[in-house]
Every structure is written in C-alpha cells, then in structure tokens.
Nucleic acid binder design. Structure first.
Lengths: 222, 222, 222, 222
DNA sequence: CATGAATGAGGTTTCATTCAT
DNA sequence: GATGAATGAAACCTCATTCAT
C-alpha cells in the first residue's frame, strides 16, 4: 500500500456501519425536496456518493427507503418533548408555550419538517406508512399537547375545553406552518416570520384557554 | 360504416363545449384520489369516456390538466364567501362563525378539499402552479377571514390582534382538517367529527379574539 | 398524402390485427434460438420491427409472450394428425408409420420443434405453462399414437403391449430427435439424418409390436 | 477478536481441498432445481456456506461453474457401465437389460438426471459446453449401448439393425424419462412409474432386436 | 374533431463480477 | 485464502406524448 497506489483512488470504500444512515439522509433530502415519485434513486445514490445498486444492499425498495426516512424523522424531538413534559414544574401556560417553542425550534425549523408534507401527500399510496406515522408521530405529539392542556384544566388555570378537539386545533397552526415552509414559502414573495407566527399562535391559544372568573367555563367534553 | 348504419347509431350526442369540463372533472377526481404522479392519463381518459389522444386536443400536458383542475376547484365557494362578506350585516363574531361554517360545508366537505393536499404536495415540482394557487385561492381566503376579523377590531368587538398572523392561525385548523380528511382519515380508525371540530375551533377563536373590558387589548400589528 | 410526404417514412404504422401474430412469431424465433431468459424484449421488438412498448400493448409480460408462443406452436399439426387418425382406413402399421412421418415433417422439421426444448427447460419456472403444454400438446400427441397402437391391438395386428407405457416409448425417439436438432445438432460435427432416424425407429417399433403366431403376446396392461 | 477468543472458536475446521467439490455440489443442486439463469450465485454461495467472493477463487465465472457441475455429473456411472461391459459374460439381451437397469438406478433416479435437461436447455448459449457434454457423456453412453447391441448382432442373437441409429433409439426413452422427471413430473398429476417404463422399454427393444429364424434380418448399416 | 396504436425515454430492480480489507 | 460491500450494466416494464388515420 504505497503512495502511488493511493493516488488511484479506490473505486469504492467499505463503510458498512455508516452507510444506511447516509443513504437515508440522502433519500430524505430528496424526498422532501421533490416528493416521492419525482425522486429518482439515481439521484439518491449520487447524493449519497454510492452506486444505485448499493441502495439495494440496505433497502428492499424505494418504498422501504421512504419508510426508513419517515421513521428516522421525529423520534428525537418527540422524545425530548416527552422528557420536558415529565419534568416541567411551572404553570400550564408556560408549559404550553414551551412546547410550541420547542416544536418550532426542533422540528419546524429543521428540514425534517418536510416529512410531514411527504407523508400527507403519499398517505393514499402507502396507507401502511400513514398508519405508522399516525401512531408513532401524530399520536405522540397530540399526547404532549393534550397533557399540557389537561394539566391547566385540572389546576383551574384553563377552561374545560373539549380536549380531543381543542388539542388538534392547538396543533394545527404549527403543522400548517411546517407545510407552508415546504410548499408556498419558496415560490411566493410575501413570506411569513415563524417567530411572530408562533408567538401570535401561542398568545391566541392561551387567550382562548385561560379561565376567567365569572365566565363560561367552556364546552367541556360536550 | 355506411349511411344506413349511421342512422341507427347516434341516439344522443355529446355537447362539444362540455368536453373540457368533463375532462377536468375526471382528472380532478383521479388527481385527488391518487395524487398527481400516480394518476395515469389513460385512466383520466377512460373515466371521461374519451380516448387518450382527445386529452391533448384540450390540454398541452399532464401538468396543464392539473392546473386546470386546480383553477376549477375553489372559485365558486370563494365567490360565494366574498358575496356574503359584502352583504353581511350582523356582528363580527357571527360573520366569522358563518365564514367558517361555509368553508366547511362548501369546500371542506366536498371532494375539492383534496386539491389543497395536491397543491401542497406538488408545489415544489410546479412552482408556477403554487404561485397561482397562492394568489387565486389562498390570498382570497385570507382576505375573507381578514376582513371579518378587521371588522370586529374596528368595531371594538375584537382585540387588536396581529392581523396578518392571526388570520393565518384562524385558517390553519380549517385547512388541516381538509388535509386530514384526505390523508389519515382513510387509514386510521379514530376519526374526527368535522362538526365538532369546526365548532370547537370557532369557539376557541372567538374566545381568543373577544375584547374584554380592562384587559390587554392584544398585540396589534406589533 | 403526396409523394413528398411518403418519402419521410412514417415513424410507425398502424396494423392492429397483424401485430400480435408478428410479435409472437418474432418472440418464438428468439425464444427458440436463445432460450427464455437470454431473450431480451428489446430484441424481440427489434425483430418484429416495433418498439419495446408496443409489446406491452398486446402482452402483459414476457411470460405472457412465452405462453402465447407456446400456445401458437403445435395446434395445427395436431389437428391435422387427429383428422388423419379419424379418416385413415389402412392397417395399423401403415397408420403408425404415417403418423411418425407426419410428426417429423410437420413438427420436427419446422422451427417449432424448438418449443419443446423451451417448455422442458422452463417447466420449473413456469409450472402453469408446463401444465398447459402437457394438457394441450403432450396429451393430444399421446392420444394419437395410443389410438393407432390400440387399433392394431384390437385387430390382432399388434401384440397386447402395456399401452400407456408403450406409447410413451414410441414417442420418445421422436421427441428426442427434435431436442437434438435444437441442441447438439448445431455444435457437433457428427450429424444425424432425420429420415434415416425416423425410418429406423418406425421399423424397430413395428418389429416390437407385430404379433407373430405362436409367440408371447406381450405384457398387456400388466 | 483477540487470541483468547480464537481459542474458543474453531471447534472444527474445513478441509481446504474439499472446497471446490462442495461449491460444485451446491451449484449443481441449484442449477438442476432452478435452471442456469434463475440460479443466483448468492444462493450457491449461501448453500455452500461460503461467501460469494469465494466462488471466484475457484471458478472464473458462472459459466465455468456450470461446466464444472456438468463435468462432475456422470463420470462415475459411466465408468461403472464401462467396467460392466468389459466383464459381462452373459447374453447380449441380458447385457442390454442390465445396462438399462443401471442407467436408471445410477443416473435416472438420482438428481444428476437434471443435468441433462440443463445441458439441452443451455446448449445454444454455451456451445462449448454442449460439445464437451456430447463428447464426454453422450458418446460414452452411446458406445455402451452400441457395444451391447453389436455383441448381439455378432453372435446372431440380434438382427442386423442400423446400429448408429438403432442405438440412439434405444437410448431415447431413457433420456426422455430423465427429462420428464425434471420437468412435467412435478406439475402434472398423472405420473409415470419408472420401473414399469424401463421394463416396457426393455421388452420392446429386445423384441425389436431379436433375430427370428426365417425373418428379415434387419436393415443393417444401410 | 376524435381516435388509439405506437413510441421511446426513463424508471426501478437484479445480479454477475470486482477488490479493498 | 476468504470476505462481502460495492459496482454498474442491463433487464423488464411504464406511461406521457405523438400522429396517421
């Protein structure tokens, strides 16, 4: 293994352990950028710096690669959120504000935000994927927000809103902002400032939830 | 194919000018049902009862057909909303509730709701389409909601919220419900009742907006 | 449609009715020549003078094309043989000799003889095909030979051999000659003269079957 | 992987020189089972318990492996047959019957029978292989049968048939039975009993060959 | 206008072969 | 010697688009 040999750089390199992650990362980038159908495996391979065939050493099919990308997406920030929920000791309002802030910072502002668009767009073509995403991502996110709201209701800080629906409505603007960032944001001039958006949402949400003496205490669970 | 045979055949005849509309309708159905990439022009033609070649008499390409479908989608309900806005004379709260109700009934509950998902999903591949949708659909919807909220602020009925953002946040749950209906709704058991969802949203929104004596009047336009 | 236009020869021509037959013929040639796996649809298309896509207008898959080729193969000569069997009025020996002669002339000497090799080679990969071939080709051929032998046994012209087996043994040399022609014949110098081969087989077969006064009349059906 | 670990590991070790044989055996099994094209070297390696790369230490290519498998196939039974021929002292009829019996027991009934089908199927793609098989297997088998028949003719036990052809015709049913076993036998219900088949063939063959006083002595060598 | 047979580029997937370790 | 990750050239198949009829 002399210097001369080194100059002829090897046609390929062996990196078994690092590979799957790199491939998924490359695939995720392109799926997010172009959508599932418009992403060619050629391009995924090229971006990952491998040949097309290598993809099939680690994944059974294009769909399998998509699943891996989705799976990879949100587990970390969700886990973080759950930890915060468990240890937080302030008011429900502060907890809710914190969750929304983290949501944006750890998910919305990252490229993974694009996965949500992806899953929504492909849910009909891959119902199994949609179910997985629903169970592993949506449900967990909903539980986080639910728990924070429930805590406020229990303590009398919030009104007794119809939780299963109110929680969805609390999440909706966050999700839509993520979608916006990965759809219209690129092609329209008038852009949205996420900070301001999230702040306004938090304010309105708190305002909508706050219990006030002598007022209608909310719809409750119907 | 002689004259005699001809006489027996044409029991009824297609109205020539109705064609493009039928083609767009067929395309819209399939685009919504399967997504852009997964829709084959063969199937569009079959559903419209014409040959594949006929599509190209009226549309330049598959993308062109998509544009036409998008264009067709929401003009009517938006127009209706604008008329209501112009003529409505009740309170801002009632106007806002009415707009949300109409949104769901005339758009969300119809199959066209699926177009929103479609546009979001394809926005990167067809920026021009995204721009069109933004200008012709989103902006108009935003203006409707904005106007209703503005009216309440002017009259002192609502707090002086940050309108450009507050209006987005008011719309978000509606949009997300439409997306839900065309994505996860099909593949997960736990379903959402749109009536309850919209009602909860309206209540929370009004609650968030209502001015109350001696309270912070809101963030205003910063 | 003037002469000038004619010079620019059309990219393609419409020949819906003629096409399937041409495609099957081209496919059969190549399947016989190279085997199923080694035949590329590209080449089939090229030989048929069409594009690759055209194949898929008429056949669902490569396997489907193979089935069509097999189906096409022997129906005519078998039908002819059955007609001869029904109308022949000479001795059983003459009938048997005639059938063997026709077998060679109408099947063995034609390119379709190669189909037999094909089916045998692919029978494991396509059991359904093998079953079809067995039922529609082998069984019919066996019935022809069986009937001729049976006729001789009934009339006392032949010994009472174990018909189901004897008939297979009568066919075997014919089948093997077909296989030989499409396998070793091309690559070994020492060639076989089919005429002489068939004649020798006929003689030996008749000799084996002929009843002779005062002799063991054969094994019968065991 | 330190020395300590090494000590525990090697409970048994492969005999280095046995390798090629194991590889060929694995390849033969799979070639017979699935055909040449449908056999993947991955599977061959897996069955042999080695890595894919190892195959290329012993064989240049897939074709080379096929050749080795073919080469391996019949040398032993052929050798046995030749020994029997040299030492047999009974009648020609008994010799012929013995050869057919051994053919079935030592070749036809074993899995190697499938090689014949393989070679026939691939003969066009690999003419060199076909030539090898012809020279090393077919010719030797033919010589065995020829010799037995020749012995009978010389002794007056058999008619003076056209030997080069008669011998082929004597072999054909045996070969076809082997092919049958590896093609249609698996996919059609109506199965053939090899014992009865071989017995019937032997009887008919002897009957066809036996000289009888006062009869046509056969066609001779034309 | 309308048809639908034909096209052919381009997609995913496979697998014999290579070669750094 | 042995490994198995990596390669890349095809292979089959799809489908938006064209154009002779």
């Amino acid at each position: 293994m002399n210097a001369t040999a080194k100059v002829l750089e090897p046609r390929w390199e062996r990196r078994k352990d690092a590979r799957p992650g790199e491939l998924v990362a490359a695939a995720m980038d392109l799926f997010i950028e172009k959508g599932f159908a418009a992403t060619r495996l050629d391009d995924v391979a090229k971006r990952a710096g491998v040949s097309k065939g290598t993809l099939y050493l680690y994944f059974d099919s294009k769909e399998d690669l998509l699943k891996a990308a989705i799976r990879e997406g949100y587990s970390e920030p969700l886990h973080h959120g759950e930890q915060v929920l468990a240890s937080f000791e302030g008011s429900a309002e502060d907890l809710l504000r914190l969750i929304l802030k983290m949501w944006w910072e750890e998910v919305g502002a990252t490229k993974q935000a694009g996965l949500t668009k992806l899953v929504i767009g492909e849910s009909q073509n891959f119902p199994e994927l949609a179910r997985f995403y629903h169970d592993e991502v949506i449900q967990r996110a909903h539980k986080l927000v639910s728990a924070a709201m429930e805590r406020g209701i229990q303590s009398g800080e919030f009104r007794a809103v119809n939780l299963p629906y109110a929680q969805r409505i609390a999440c909706a603007p966050m999700v839509l902002l993520m979608l916006w960032k990965h759809s219209f944001a690129c092609c329209v001039p008038n852009t949205v400032d996420p900070q301001e958006y999230v702040a306004t949402h938090a304010d309105m949400l708190i305002h909508a939830l706050k219990a006030r003496p002598g007022e209608d205490p909310g719809r409750g669970d119907k």
